[in-house]
């Protein structure tokens, strides 16, 4: 118990002294995580959409070749960036690009650092999202596409109006996952000298050696961020699901015509009927009406 009290006192002392630096770190972490998640999702969306453009044997050779080629490229991108650690990707991009371009492309100064960090985390998120988006799109019942095509929609119209809105709802938990992972994993950006929440911790403990106490503050900080993030995501999901009930619309009595009704509680002429009525319909269907009645 004493240990906890001591830890609490040390943490309080650290916070009092360095709270502004911790907060600046949190701000950097959040900006980087949000920016990279948004850009990453856009990359993933693009890859997922390109990957699911349908083609048949009857399409021209060029179209089939281009689509096949795109799929191979996306596949390679996904496998490479999903299969290597983000720490190394950061090093490769931050130091590798200037190296290969003879310093033509360099990440200069603080803005360069931000750019590099956002690029690395975005590309990484995009690789994960590409697969999620593809899965989200192919998980939608093919009947939805057929329904859209049957009323004359093109592939693009069917995608934007029918498939993607539903796929987006389905992959929202995945987006949330990636956002939370990004909040935490942006900490590896210290390898290129990007100072975010974890980077601030490294600087602070470099001065005073209160390694464990500062780590405890970090823990609480990260957990707070991720908890708030998951709460907001839940809220968004619930908002997208819409209300679980709906309002019946009572029509204007004057515009009522045959086949409609004014009292939803009494049912429509087409709704489930009474046993007697049902029997009558069944008889009519069985024995048929005179063709003259048509």
């Amino acid at each position: 118990m004493d240990k906890f009290i001591e830890l609490g006192q040390d943490m309080a002392a650290l916070w009092m002294q360095y709270w502004d630096r911790y907060l600046v770190g949190i701000r950097s972490t959040l900006i980087l995580a949000v920016a990279a998640t948004v850009i990453g999702c856009l990359i993933g969306l693009l890859c997922g959409i390109l990957n699911t453009i349908p083609y048949t044997k009857n399409d021209p050779l060029l179209k089939r070749f281009v689509l096949k080629f795109i799929r191979v490229i996306v596949r390679i991108y996904v496998e490479v960036f999903r299969g290597t650690p983000m720490v190394l990707q950061a090093v490769f991009i931050y130091y590798g690009l200037p190296y290969f371009t003879d310093q033509q492309i360099m990440f200069r100064g603080n803005s360069g650092l931000w750019l590099a960090a956002i690029i690395v985390v975005s590309i990484n998120t995009g690789a994960y999202m590409a697969e999620s988006v593809r899965g989200g799109i192919i998980s939608i019942d093919p009947g939805q596409t057929e329904g859209a095509k049957a009323i004359g929609m093109t592939h693009v119209q069917a995608m934007t109006n029918v498939i993607l809105p539903q796929a987006f709802r389905n992959i929202l938990p995945q987006i949330g996952n990636n956002f939370i992972i990004n909040i935490k994993d942006t900490s590896v950006m210290f390898v290129i000298g990007f100072i975010e929440f974890f980077g601030q911790h490294r600087n602070i403990v470099g001065n005073n050696n209160m390694y464990f106490q500062s780590a405890a503050i970090e823990m609480i900080g990260y957990l707070t961020m991720t908890l708030i993030a998951s709460f907001l995501l839940r809220l968004l999901e619930r908002h997208l699901d819409g209300s679980s009930s709906y309002q019946l619309v009572q029509g204007d009595a004057l515009t009522m015509t045959a086949g409609t009704y004014n009292h939803p509680s009494r049912g429509t002429p087409f709704d489930e009927r009474s046993t007697e009525e049902r029997e009558r319909t069944r008889q009519a269907l069985k024995h048929g009406r005179n063709r003259g009645e048509r």
Partner: peptide, 16 residues
């Protein structure tokens, strides 16, 4: 929607 007797349900989602 009037013709098929579904006019009162315009605000419902298909799953409902």
């Amino acid at each position: 929607l009037h013709q098929v007797g579904m006019a009162p349900y315009i605000n419902a989602k298909p799953r409902q």
